[in-house]
């Protein structure tokens, strides 16, 4: 199946939270944290790539920006594993 990820393949998940915050009337991390029901530290960790959220939090963040979840988070195969 095209685009499928095989077992054992490493995925790199990135996010566009910082960019989306900027375009959402320069929303602050604190404002996003309040909308998503998380702490500001968690938003900071997400933007720095130090944390991968649960599905629930990912959807809450997408809802906070009023965009589909796919616009917030992107998934790629780790370089070297790409075909």
């Amino acid at each position: 199946m095209k685009g499928a990820f095989g077992m054992g393949e490493k995925l790199v998940i990135t996010n566009n939270i910082r960019k989306l915050r900027f375009f959402a009337n320069e929303m602050t991390q604190l404002e996003l944290a309040e909308k998503a029901g998380a702490s500001r530290q968690t938003i900071m960790a997400l933007e720095a790539g130090k944390y991968l959220p649960s599905l629930e939090l990912a959807f809450k963040i997408a809802n906070a920006f009023d965009v589909p979840i796919g616009e917030v988070f992107e998934c790629k195969k780790e370089e070297g594993n790409q075909k």
């Binding site: 944290a33 702490s39 968690t42 959220p53 939090l57």
Partner: peptide, 14 residues
């Protein structure tokens, strides 16, 4: 106050 409260929230990551 919101800043202080936000730091002390225990969310899924914590």
């Amino acid at each position: 106050e919101k800043l202080v409260a936000s730091s002390m929230v225990e969310d899924e990551r914590d």
